Structure formats: C-alpha cells, structure tokens
Simulated scan of single mutants.
Amino acid sequence: MKKVNTLILFFGLAAFCHAQEIIEIPYEKPTDIVWEGEEKDYYSKIWDTEIVSNVSIPRMEVFRADPAIANGTSVIIAPGGGLYAHSIKKEGTDVAKWLNDNGITAFVLKYRLVPTKGDAVKEITEAGANNPAEIGVKVKPILPLAISDGLSAISYVRSHAEDFGVDSNKIGFMGFSAGGAVTMGVSYNYTPQNKPNFLVPVYPWTTVIPIQKAPEDAPPMLVICATDDPLGLAVGSTALYSSWQKDGKVVGLHMYAKGGHGFGMKPQGLPSDNWIARFYEWSIAEGITVPQTE
C-alpha cells in the first residue's frame, strides 16, 4: 500500500508540474463586436494542424524555462491564422518548448480573433477562394484589438518579470503571419512600459498593415520568410527589413529560397526548418540572450 501511495504521489506531482499555467491579460471589451459561443480548440484537416478559434478573451499560456538553464530572456509568441484562428501548435506551443530547451521562457498569446461560429479555417479558406474582400472587412476591426492584446501581454510580463524569473529588459515579441502583423503593430505603437526589447516577425502578413518608418528608438528585429511564400509576403518582408536598415537600426533577415507559408516548427526537409536556430544564434550575437554552458 505504501508503494501504491508513493506512485500516486509521484504521478500527481508530475501532473502538477506539467499543468497549464494560463493567464488572462488586461483588455478593454469592445462595444461593437460580439462573439457568440465559446472558444474552439480542434484539429483542422484543411491546415493539417491544431488550431484555436473564436477567441474573445486574450490569454497567455506560460512556458517557464528550467531554472537550471534559464537565462532571463523571454519571448511572447503570437501564432498565425489570418486573424480567424491560431495555429496553436506549430506556431505556438512547439516554438515555446524549443525556446524552453534553450533557457528562454515563453508565453503563447491567444490574441482576439474574428468571431466565428463553426469551422474558422473552412470559413477563411472559402472566403479566400470566393470573396477575398470579405476577409479584409472582417479582419479590419479585429487587428487593432489583437495589437492591443500584444502590447498588454508585454506590459504584463514586464510588470511580473520577477515572478516569472525573467529580465524585464529582455522581453521579445515573435509573431507568425497574422501574428507577424500583430508584431508589426506592436513595433509601431509601443510606449516605454510595453516596448518589446526585440522583434521577430516570421513571414509577417505585411499586406494587412502598412510598413512605416522605423521608430527612433526601434528595438532590434529579425525578419524571417521564404521567397516562395505563396501569399507573396517575401516582398513585404524585405521592405520591412529595409525600413529598419535604412535608418541604421539593428536588423537581420533570413530569406529562404524555399519554405512556403506557415512552416513554423513543421519539418519539411528544407533549410527553413532551422529558422529558430538562426534566431537563437542572432539573439546571442546581439546580446539578447546568452548561450548555455556545459
């Protein structure tokens, strides 16, 4: 019986250690947008990945780095999905776990999305094929909310940095596709309290938000994309890079010949599979993080 109780205690502690740590971040509720029903979490056969849709309350899932290797750097991750959904695994939790393995604490941000009742991925796919203008109409009022969620997430992490065991001056923001548009919005609208210390837009949706002049105190930025992106985002990615570079800001660009769109952490047997390692190397070179020691 003692052995059984020990096993129960062991598995109970294991379950506790792996329990999700979810934080609702401060936000202002809009008066002109209504979400019906609950948030949905399901596997999309169309996108061949796990997604989350109909998000009305912004939250973060916390992935703490092991204290034995934690280096104080943190990254807020904004998954993509056209502002209709979050590609929550390959552009969210899988990214966070890789960062954790390298001593970086991560926060997967569920920013607010277009209200949808059924299959959000099916809805945006059909709209893209039959009425692309409809996507723009639905996304327009949501993008400012998503950007405000990104800024709120940075403020929250900074004000609770000690609790999370992170450096308040090493908080980055990394976004994929639509999350990349959120990253751009964050880069143009921050205040001293919610300014990111570095930015990583990954195949950012540059057609939904205008590329602007880099801020005077612009944080370092690394842009990642593929030339063969079927949404044509390579052009916008290079323009975003140039907007930082021409004003003498710290910026890098990894443009892969092949990779397509939405590759995230999904292996394709291409050099783009290693984009996150290139980010890590860049972060070390810029003094954003420090390498692990044996």
Rank of each mutant, 00 (worst) to 15 (best):
S242L: 14
D217M: 08
P220Y: 07
A214T: 03
G236D: 00
W244N: 04
A226V: 02
D228Y: 04
A239R: 14
A214K: 01
Q245M: 14
K213P: 11
K246D: 15
G232M: 06
P220L: 06
A214F: 08
V235P: 09
I209L: 10
M221H: 12
V251Q: 09
P215L: 10
C225G: 08
S237R: 01
T238G: 13
S237I: 03
I224V: 09
V250G: 15
G252D: 08
P210C: 09
T238K: 14
L233M: 07
C225D: 12
C225K: 10
S237H: 00
V250N: 14
L253P: 00
P230S: 05
V235R: 11
G248E: 07
S237Q: 03
K246Y: 15
E216F: 13
K246V: 13
A234H: 05
G232Q: 04
V235D: 15
K246C: 12
A226Q: 03
S242N: 14
P215Q: 07
A239W: 11
L233W: 00
G252I: 08
L240P: 03
V223Q: 01
K246E: 14
S237T: 04
V235H: 14
L233C: 00
T238W: 13
P219G: 04
A218W: 09
T238P: 14
L231W: 00
G248A: 05
A214G: 01
V223H: 01
I211F: 02
D228W: 07
S237P: 01
G252H: 04
A214W: 09
Y241D: 06
Q245F: 14
D217S: 06
L240G: 08
K246M: 15
P230M: 00
A214N: 02
V235F: 10
L253E: 02
P210T: 08
Q245G: 13
V251M: 10
P219F: 02
P230H: 01
L231D: 00
P215F: 09
M221Y: 12
V251A: 12
L222R: 05
K213W: 13
I209N: 06
D229S: 02
L253K: 04
T238A: 12
I224G: 02
G236R: 00
T238N: 13
E216M: 12
P220T: 08
S243A: 11
V251D: 08
A234I: 02
Q212V: 15
V251E: 08
S243Q: 08
K213R: 14
W244L: 06
K249S: 03
V223G: 01
A218S: 05
V235N: 12
D247I: 11
I224S: 02
G236E: 01
G236P: 02
L231K: 00
A226I: 01
E216W: 13
V223D: 02
C225W: 10
T227I: 14
M221D: 11
Q245V: 12
L233F: 05
K249T: 06
V250K: 14
V235C: 15
V223E: 01
D247R: 15
L231F: 05
T227A: 12
P215H: 10
H254Y: 13
K249Y: 11
Q245E: 13
S237C: 04
D247T: 14
